[in-house]
Design a protein around this nucleic acid. Sequence first.
RNA 1: GCGCGCUUGGCUCAGCGGUAGAGCACCGCCUUCACACGGCGGGGGUCGGAGGUUCGAAUCCUCCAGCGCGCACCA
Length: 863
Amino acid sequence: MPVPEKPALEGLEDALSARWERDGTYRFDRSKPRDQVYAIDTPPPTVSGSLHVGHVFSYTHTDIVARFQRMRGKEVFYPMGWDDNGLPTERRVQNYFGVRCDPSLPYDPNFRLPDEADPSTGSGSPRAKSRGEKQPISVSRPNFIELCVKLTVEDEQLFEHLWRYLGLSVDWSMTYATIAPPAQRVSQMMFLRLLQKKLAYQVEAPTLWDVDFRTAVAQAELEDREQPGAYHRIHFSQAGGSGVVAIETTRPELIPACVALVAHPDDARYQSLFGTEVITPIFGVRVPVLAHALADPEKGSGIAMICTFGDTTDVTWWRELKLPVRAIVQPDGTLGRVTWGDRGWECADVARAQQAYDQLVGLSAKKAQVKVVELLRESGDLQGEPKPITHNVKFYEKGDRPLEIVTSRQWFFKTIDYRDQLIARGREIAWHPAYMQARYENWVNGLNGDWCVSRQRFFGVPFPVWYPLLADGTTDYHQPLVPAESRLPIDPSTDVPDGYTADQRGQPGGFIADPDVMDTWATSSVSPQLVSQWQTDADIFARTFPMDLRPQAHDIIRTWLFSSVVRAHFENDSVPWTHAAISGWVLDPDRKKMSKSKGNVVTPLGLLQEYGSDGVRYWAARGGPGVDTAFDVGQMKIGRKLAMKVLNVSKFVLAGEQPVGTVTEALDRGMLQNLANLVDEATEELSDYEYARALAKIESFFWDFCDNYVEAAKSRRYGDFGVDAAASASTAMRLALSVLLRLLAPYLSFVCEEVWSWSNAGSVHRAQWPTREDLIAVSGTDDAAQRSVFHLTEALNAIRKAKTDRKVSVGTPVREVIYFAGDEAARSLALVERDLKAACRADGLVLKTGEPRVEITLKPAEA
RNA sequence: GCGCGCUUGGCUCAGCGGUAGAGCACCGCCUUCACACGGCGGGGGUCGGAGGUUCGAAUCCUCCAGCGCGCACCA
């Protein structure tokens, strides 16, 4: 392909991404053995969200690594996934189609929406609206998932277009969706195997619970939020005595759920109370006073009320002190009905307790608190006024109200007993940057319970489990019915366990389905097994697993990364990947994390169009592993400028007929040797995932190459000193450019490909990564030549400055330049004298030894 | 409370034992035959603070401060 007259960056993204697709440039060659494969476990973006500049940032980092590895000779396994499993998609499907999922319904293979049209026409306009405010249509879970897949196809196409435009070197023939059947199959199969190994278990226990979503949540999904509250000082009277015990609590509404008081065993103030009983205010329940080391003498009055359950410490006390349960908070967050006087609810004055408590039934915790405080005031059990404080309260990260602890039946994966093994796995992984490993270990060390994986939602991967119904209609949770692996994926709400018929569903002697779905991390944590074709293609699996790289952001170390390590540990007895590259966040100019909820995101496609994908890639590439990076269009402009420079210098080097020959000139040989050093440095940095450092070095060399080497060799290349000298220059220049294009290709993937195609067949992205030997073979090793490049640059800079001081253009021809330099420099410069003289446009150049300075004699002013 | 990271010119950052660097911004010069989506040059910082190690410290150690983050605690 000839060098264009007016090369331009515009249009490269569309043209080249189409060419890459046509040529299958990034297609995975599954014939390569494991040691020649580089496998990447790409994070699947959430399709119902939108891609923002943070995605562009971190996905570019991965792509740079992928391109480097590919050029180094690795066959890169680089699939892309779409995360459509979770609340955002669930809500979108509901609104868009006007449906509701009802997991009790069986699958309807002939289901059609009343006014079914093609959902791929037009986005964001909820179909439901056009039907007015009609009731949503109830559909089965499998039908709901079908609708989801239908809807997200459109998002996936938009996302894919953006990724192609950005230049991700993904193999687009390998994509997956986290709710689609293959993902369900792997999730369910791995679940069943954990169940068989007794690493998955079910238990009825107090669990963190979101009262709005009405589901259990896991420790990994918690976040602390600073909330206003108040200490209430409340009197408990001593049973059989006249004294009172004052406790402080932020949750007086839980007094009816109180099962004990607790103080530190060494606390002198309460020694005489241990082993005695006290009476709760208002409700008159006798509860013991106990000792436990977790009680903090410094906090409040040093003695705490244990309720079932106010917080996780209550759970610990309840478990360790073997206390009874008096649960009052219901799954919806309101206080449930209690019949005082019944077993477990014995109290001194049943009528009074009932009369008081009935006023609380149906109230939210917050409202109940107001009422209880009122009752305490009336009874005189509240001492003084509540003391306002702010304190951290646990929230579900997507929730709006504080978590409650509700007793319910949940599935768990074992983690607690395996902490040491999981930490050891973490040490088998190379972390980039290395200090991110500390986050992982912090998290694993801080685990305080097994991983709760069931969610009381309907959109997600169902547990492939049924339970027998006994003759009396009760459920036998101890003998779960599971399908053969060959049947997977299944949906127990529709499918029937072996040995049963569909009409036995819900009947005594029949079966019922497990109603829950898996936690989103319980399914996404199997992405390495899913993409590596575990149990579906043993050949691919053997060539890709354990994978090489997991790229992800640091906020999900405790979720996606941790859970993936857990799954691979138990299923494959290995790490899921050997490297974890943790990217930082994009910060807005106020140094805040950019996120959609903060309303400060920038639409990426517009940026890519304005600054060019190469410009944006350049900005992203400057943010090293783990480094939070400011959103900065200035850097994108610089990236674009760099891409322009590549275009222009390439035009100079490649355009026209140039003589080819032996590289003989000192300047050329020295430059190539310097370039050989750069190749080594860049290769080392990139091998170590330090793509930002590599870029800084390559970029610096490149500008020096353009501004000094090319300028100095230009005249000779034009033939001013004969054809052999010209051939030396043009041959060296072409080689250097070829090497520089390859070094820059992982970063400026479009412009490098464009320019490469002017003088090469095939893609630069499949070209071999340059080596020192390629260059030294041409330049030889010659210390003097190498030094001459340095001295020439020094001299050129000094002479340019001298011209500037004389207020003439650098291009101004001058009569004479006298350059004083050190002895060694003067000798070295003699090797490149012709080039230097031509570069400073002097009729005469005199090199002298002495204190470094420059003397210039201008030509007489032209009339 | 424990842990991690950051603190370098106006801005964004690199350097991590050997005389303070880059780009942007700013100022000046230059429309030179690859490039005005350009080129050349210039001013500008005692590298958060205090100690210490060393012939020598932005770079290593200790302590402190500010910012950010993780984990734990949260009666």
